[in-house]
Computed example of a mutant assay.
Amino acid sequence: MSERAERTTDTAEPPLDSATEAFLAHRNLLFTVAYEMLGSAADAEDVLQETWLRWVGVDPGTVREERAYLVRIVTRQALDRLRALGRRKESYVGPWLPEPLLTAPDVAEDVELADSVSMAMLVVLETLQPIERAVFVLREVFDLDYDEIAEAVDKTPVAVRQIAHRARAHVAARRPRGIASPAETRAALQAFQRAVETGDLQSLLDILAPDVVALSDGGGIRHALLRPVVGVGKVARLLAVGWWKRDAERSVELVQVNGGPGLLVRVNGELDGVLAVRVDDGYVTGLYHVRNPEKLSRVDRQTAVSR
């Protein structure tokens, strides 16, 4: 064997075992399930690690369908984590918002996926009980049948149907109004960006919906709103004079946040926060401003999500 061939053989990557291949094939899906249940990428990654440890200990001969089996494991782990998070959120300072993700442009093209990971939808999902949230996500987003969901959440199929009906009605009463076209979204976001950069009150009044809602999350570390601000006049004044540091060098960058439009906000060159923007019918209807630095680790790179 030649020296070159020997070097090639020595440095070749060993083949993956079947358990690893299966896990990696479904990893983005599993992350998305966990993230939609938890609203936290850091906790979703922990759940994936726990899922992996349980998966490698499973006898392959007992697995009929790898995807369903992995979803079952990740759901159970996420439910345990979600209950623990609920106790943690009780002592959280100010409103709790999901951890924002930078997503690829093609996520926005999958309308249902983009809606399911949007900040607006994740805020609505926070109002569900843990078991309701799990059932809603698995049924409405990932289209699992009731028997599969029943195995994942340790309920009967009949009980799962009832939970799904209750969760669906709850979300329908609170979910955003609709989904804007890409052209509407781009136009509204560009107008909003210009208004924010200039602090022009009239331009803000023109682009914000009458019932626009603004929320912010500083986690007790950064200054943030302690309660939602509702209504075009209040939100416009907040953006024009109260939310941004006018005495600092500030810049905003258009990005895709959780499958929708958003802005990265930098002050004196340092990342200050992420502003996810909800657009309906050509107007900005929701603003979700995350300043808690513990929730900004994912905005330096894109995160893959999938169904």
Rank of each mutant, 00 (worst) to 15 (best):
D206P: 13
G220E: 02
R161V: 00
V212G: 05
L144Y: 13
F192P: 08
A183H: 10
E132V: 05
D211P: 12
E151R: 13
E148F: 01
P157K: 11
D143R: 14
Q190A: 13
P182F: 05
P130L: 06
D147Q: 11
R175G: 05
R168M: 03
M119C: 09
S181K: 07
L226H: 13
M119P: 05
D200E: 14
F142M: 09
E151I: 01
K155I: 00
K155S: 12
L226P: 00
L122V: 13
L122C: 09
I149A: 07
S181P: 01
G199K: 02
V158K: 10
A195Q: 08
G218C: 13
R177A: 08
T198C: 04
D206W: 11
V212T: 03
E126H: 11
E132L: 06
L215V: 06
H165Y: 08
R175Q: 13
A164I: 00
A224P: 15
V212Q: 03
L208I: 02
V123S: 07
D154M: 07
A173G: 10
V196N: 15
P182K: 07
M119D: 04
R139Q: 11
A187Q: 15
Y146V: 07
L128P: 02
P210H: 01
V123H: 05
Q129E: 15
V124L: 00
E184R: 01
A180R: 06
L204A: 01
Q193L: 10
A169M: 10
H170R: 12
E148M: 05
L125P: 01
A169L: 09
L226W: 08
H223G: 06
R166N: 10
R168Q: 11
V171M: 02
E132W: 04
D217G: 13
V196E: 15
Q193A: 14
D217V: 03
H170L: 09
R175D: 11
L125C: 07
L205H: 15
V212Y: 04
R133M: 07
Q129S: 12
L125Y: 08
A169Y: 04
A180I: 15
I207K: 00
A164H: 12
P130D: 05
A120N: 10
A191E: 15
I163T: 13
V135P: 15
R174W: 04
D154V: 08
A173Y: 01
S203E: 15
E151A: 09
S216N: 01
A180C: 03
A180Y: 02
S216T: 00
F136M: 06
R175S: 12
L122D: 08
R222H: 10
L215I: 04
L144H: 11
I131K: 11
I221R: 10
Q129D: 15
T198Y: 01
A159Y: 04
Q162T: 04
A195Y: 13
G199I: 08
P157E: 01
T127Q: 04
F142A: 07
L225G: 02
V171K: 00
I149G: 07
D154F: 03
P176L: 00
S203K: 14
R168G: 05
I207L: 00
A188L: 13
A224E: 11
D145E: 12
M119S: 14
R174K: 14
A195W: 14
L128Q: 01
G220S: 03
A167T: 11
L138A: 06
